[in-house]
Simulated scan of single mutants.
Amino acid sequence: MHELGVVIKVVKNVEDFARKNGVTNIETLVLQIGALASVIPRFVENCYPMAVKGTMLEDTRLKIEVLPANARCRACETVFNALKHKSVCPHCSGGNPEMISGNEFMIKEIVAC
């Protein structure tokens, strides 16, 4: 499970940001994870307590927002959910869409107390 290493890196980045900006108490950490990302939200949630133990984030709440895997049809420009429609445009049945979202993994928000 590579999620633990990824979350440890996120914790270090958040701690660095907090120190540089004078933040001493963080209530919530919000992550955005794309539906096609190589990081699995459930695994991130499971390893989060281990990753924050002994850090300034130890008492924080983790919130994860899963972003959809959106694609744009190259034929008709329709934007659609690629997973729901199995990468086939629901408007014109075109294949080979351009992926426009779904691979993200980012810190969206740090909520300080």
Rank of each mutant, 00 (worst) to 15 (best):
M1R: 15
E3F: 03
L4W: 07
G5E: 09
V7D: 03
I8Q: 12
I8Y: 07
K9H: 13
K9G: 15
K9E: 11
V14G: 01
F17Q: 00
A18V: 12
K20T: 15
K20Q: 15
K20F: 09
N21D: 10
G22S: 05
G22K: 00
V23C: 06
V23T: 04
T24V: 14
V30A: 07
Q32H: 08
Q32I: 13
G34D: 01
G34A: 03
A37F: 05
V39Q: 04
I40Q: 12
I40P: 09
P41R: 01
P41A: 06
V44G: 00
V44L: 05
E45R: 15
N46F: 11
C47E: 01
C47V: 14
P49G: 10
M50A: 13
A51K: 02
A51Y: 02
K53V: 10
T55E: 02
M56R: 04
L57E: 09
E58V: 01
E58D: 09
D59K: 15
D59F: 09
R61E: 15
L62K: 12
L67W: 02
A71V: 01
A71F: 04
R74F: 06
C76R: 13
E77Y: 11
F80S: 06
F80P: 11
N81I: 11
H85S: 08
K86Q: 15
S87G: 04
S87Q: 13
S87I: 09
C89K: 09
P90E: 02
C92Y: 05
C92W: 04
S93Q: 15
S93C: 08
G94Q: 13
G95K: 11
E98A: 02
E98S: 12
I100L: 01
S101C: 12
G102N: 04
E104M: 03
F105P: 02
M106K: 14
I107E: 08
K108P: 00
I110F: 03
